[in-house]
Structures are given as C-alpha cells and as structure tokens.
Nucleic acid binder design. Structure first.
Length: 535
DNA sequence: TTAGGGTTAG
C-alpha cells in the first residue's frame, strides 16, 4: 500500500479507480503517477509508484519519465532524479525533448543551475518549454544576467517568446529588486502586445511592488481590465509588505465586494498586513472568519502568521499558548517565527525552547542555530555562543552570509560585510566616514548591541560601519541622482543599528531611502521610517 | 498521459 499523502481527496479517488482496473498498462501507470505529482504533495508516493511499475516489467515511456522527474525535482536529495534519468538513458529515450525539459527543471528546482545548463545544452532540439524552463531556473536562482542573455537568444532563434517567458523574467527581476530590468521588460512586452495579459499584469504588480515601487504596482493593478484572485492577493501582499495595512485591508474588502473569492494565500497576506503594524484584534478577527465565512481551513502558514502577530508585539506568552492550542502539531516554521520574536524581545528562555523544537524537526537548520546564537550574544552569554558555533562547525553548517545590493544603471552591485572588492570601494568608505561623523553630530548613537562578537566597544563601532546595508546606501549616495529614492535590498532582516543610522542619513542628505529586507519594506524619509520602528 | 508561468508567512 502507498504511503498516505496530505493532498485532497481527488488523488485518493484516482487511486481507487486505478486499483479497480483489472490490468495496468503504461498509460494507466503514467496517469496515476501524474495525478500524484500534480496533487503537489505526493512526490514520494509518485516515485514509489514508478518503481512499482518498473518491477512489474512495464516499460516506462517519455511521458512517465517526464512526470517522475518532476516529482524528483521536489525532493531534497538529487540522487533519485539522477538514477531515474540514467534509466531513461538506458532505455534510449533520454534525448526525447520532454524528458530533457523535465531534467532541466528538476535541476533548476534544486538550485543546481550548472547541471540544468548542461541538460539544456545537450538537448538535441530545444523548444519553447526548454527555454522557459532554463530562463525560469536562472530567474528563480537569482541569476538574472544569464536569464536575460538567454532571453535575447530566444528572440534570435525564432521560437517566439511566450507570456511565460516574460512572467519568469519579471519574477527574476523582482526577486533581486532589479527595477530597471523590470521596466525594460515592461516596455518590451507592451510592444509585444501583452498589455492586457492577466498573467503578465500580475507578474508586473509583483515586480514593481517587490522592487519597492508600490505606486507603480498599484497603477498596473488599476489599469487591468480583468482581475483575478492573484491580482488582488498580489496587491494586498504589496501593501502589507510596504506597511500600508489600512490600504491592504481596504483592498481585501473591495475584493470581497467584487465577488472574488479569497484563497489561502490571500489570508496569509491579510494576516501579515495586520502583523506588520500590530493590529492584533483585527488579525484575530480575520483568522476566525477565514473558515467560517470562506471555508478555508487554516494551514500551518496561517498559524505561523498568528504566532508572528502575537510574538512581534511582545505577547510571547500568548503566542506560546496559541501554539499549545493549535489542532496541528507546530512545525519548524511556527517555532522559527516564535524564535524570531524571542530574539526581538530578548526572551532567552522561551527562545531556547523554540530552537530546540526546530532542531528536533530540522536538525540541520542553520537559521535556528544562528538565531539562538544571536539571542545569547545580545544577552552577553558568550560561552553559549561559542558552544553553538562549535556545534555548527561540527555539523558542517554554514550560515547564510548577510548581503545587500542596489541596482544602478541596470547593473546590480552586491556588497558583503566589510566589502573591499568593489572598484569604488575607496570612495564608498570615504563617504561612510563622512556620513558617520555627520550623523553623530546630529545625535546618532551607535548601538553596539547589534555587533554579535565579544570584542571591545570601540572596535564594535567600526564593525557597525562595515555592515553591508550601510555600504550599499553609501554607494547609492555617490552614484545616483539626488532626485530619485535610493532602493537597497538585503537578504536578511535589516540590522537595528543600520535602521537607525539610515534614518539619520536620510535627514542628513535629504534623500528618500527604501530598504527591502527579508521581511518587509522600510520607506525612510526625513528621519522617519514607514515601519514606525516596528518590524 | 508529458515538460514551462503569475500571489505565500520569516
């Protein structure tokens, strides 16, 4: 019997039909495998079925391989997929176009773009799907340069560019915050006659919003002739991320008025809108009504939003009680959310409990170690910090390096902590020095609590001015025109000291600075941030 | 019967 998977009942129905069939051929096997893959949560079962099919001496065809490779792409281990592929090679059908296309997206999905590129290059005949798969892979894996190169190549091959290609490129531009690139694509697709394509407009809304230009996103939304739940949800998410909770909720009500049914993602957006501004009772109200009014059963994501809503505002005990009252067993995401809140509010004891719960389920999660270590560091418990770092080293866990970037004249400039390799590094640090003394005169006091090393105070201050977000801001100041806002991006949460410093910098220079961190946007102008220092 | 796209919390 197959392992039970968490998808809806339709897979079960398909399986019943399948099992009642007197005999099975390659078509019925492939159909049931595909049903499992398409259900979204039954990849292991699909692969089990594929193995069963082979052991029953049914020879898989290219359709079977396509589906099962897709399932393999969703697994964390890459070996199953490679084994399956070498079997396709053995049967002599690996070179069939759709098998190759599945292989490309399998590698792309697990971030192995070099392998994906090899699979793409050896394809005997490339079609639009092959191009879309590789372009999407590059875009999703933050390699938008390669994506754009291929985009130009497609134009040369005469294969034609589809709405899919544009959507991938837009989401690629969005994920790295390359608004210049996004605007270029926008221009191109207007020429290509895609102006009223719903899918593309949705991608445009998300692109502008994720690049920090929420008003441009809203303009695209307003000009759309035909909106669906994704258009509305993208706009709600956009307003939520930019801290405009009221506008987000207004959107939500308008959406209901127009008769568009919300889905589970819409509710994630609504709850996070409340969470970002601390509207606790409003959030609770929506959480309670999602099932009652729209029949949407809260999933783990929604519980995590609620833990965030409570935890972020400091109601840690209530957040813990909420977790205990959940009908589902809290997963690592929920505990990670609680741990994040413990870090913000300095609750070491509860934080340690949350970290333990995460590591119980995901023993190799570097984020849990880092959060826990930072928690101890800000409490000055250096012995615990050393212990955690040591056990990370033993487990070979690498933390995601903090990194900030900015797009200037269509080029993305990336900076790590203490970056010196940029060609204008000298000017950048000069600018930083000047800024430091200027803002100190204005009353800025370095908050060395955010330096998580056990070192002397004076040194700590120097460390603060090597943070990647400050470097990116300094580079933005010396390389962009006064009239435009500076938009910088960070892969992690913005550091508290940088947040304060950037507020002073906005006052000292008269520039508007927009920061997108891993959580949300900060629009900083005249010393005030749109997040009201609550994030 | 197949492969590719647009919305997700932290």
């Amino acid at each position: 019997m197959y392992a039970k998977c968490a998808a809806d009942g339709s897979v079960d129905d398909s399986r019943k039909v399948f099992e009642q069939m007197p005999e099975h051929n390659v078509m019925s096997w492939t159909a049931i495998i595909t049903a499992y893959v398409q259900s979204g949560e039954c990849d292991k079962e699909a692969i089990e079925l594929f193995c069963k099919m082979i052991s029953g001496h049914i020879r898989p065809n290219h359709f079977s391989f396509s589906s099962v490779l897709k399932a393999c792409g969703n697994l964390s281990d890459p070996y199953t997929g490679e084994q399956v592929y070498s079997y396709a090679v053995k049967l002599g059908i690996a070179s069939v176009n759709c098998v190759g296309n599945s292989l490309i997206s399998m590698y792309a999905r697990s971030g192995r773009m070099e392998d994906a590129r090899k699979a793409f290059d050896i394809l005997f005949e490339k079609n639009l799907v092959s191009y879309n798969a590789i372009v999407d892979g590059y875009a999703k894996n933050l390699k938008s340069e390669e994506a754009f190169l291929l985009f130009n190549e497609i134009a040369d091959t005469g294969i034609g560019i589809s709405a899919f290609t544009f959507a991938s490129l837009l989401s690629g531009a969005a994920s790295i915050g390359a608004m210049g690139k996004g605007e270029q694509i926008h221009g191109r697709l207007l020429k290509g006659g895609y102006k009223s394509n719903q899918c593309i407009c949705n991608a445009l809304i998300s692109m502008y919003s994720r690049c920090g230009n929420i008003e441009a996103a809203f303009q695209v939304f307003n000009e759309m002739e035909d909106r669906n739940v994704i258009s509305w949800t993208s706009m709600i998410t956009g307003f939520a991320k930019h801290g405009f909770a009221t506008r987000a909720l207004e959107m939500f009500h308008k959406m209901l008025e127009t008769g568009t049914k919300p889905n589970e993602i819409t509710y994630v957006a609504v709850l996070s809108a409340c969470s970002h501004v601390g509207m606790i009772s409003e959030g609770q109200k929506h959480f309670n009504s999602m099932y009652k009014e729209h029949g949407i059963v809260p999933r783990m994501e929604h519980y995590a939003c609620m833990v965030d809503l409570l935890g972020r505002s400091g109601l840690l005990v209530e957040a813990m009680e909420f977790i205990n009252s959940m009908p589902l067993m809290a997963d690592a995401l929920v505990w990670r959310t609680l741990l994040g809140a413990c870090r913000v509010h300095g609750n070491t004891e509860l934080g340690r409990h949350a970290a333990e719960m995460i590591l119980e389920q995901e023993p190799d999660d570097p984020a849990a170690y880092i959060l826990l270590s930072n928690l101890h560091a800000s409490a000055g418990q250096w012995k615990d910090v050393v212990k955690i770092r040591k056990s990370m080293k033993e487990r070979n866990l690498i933390k995601e390096a903090g990194c900030s970037w900015i797009e200037v004249e269509n080029r993305v400039h990336r900076f790590h902590v203490g970056e010196t390799s940029h060609p204008q590094a000298w000017q950048i640090y000069q600018e930083l020095d000047q800024l430091a003394s200027k803002i100190k005169e204005m009353g800025y006091i370095p908050d060395t609590d955010f330096v998580l090393h056990d070192i002397e105070e004076e040194q700590k201050e120097q460390f603060l001015f090597q943070h990647s977000e400050k470097i990116a801001v300094a580079f933005g100041l010396i390389s962009t025109s006064q009239s435009k806002p500076i938009r910088i991006f960070k892969n992690l949460r913005v550091c508290g000291d940088c947040h304060t410093a950037i507020k002073y910098i906005s006052m000292a220079t008269g520039r508007e600075i927009v920061v997108r961190d891993s959580n949300r946007f900060h629009h900083i102008k005249n010393g005030v941030c749109s997040c009201n220092d609550y994030w």
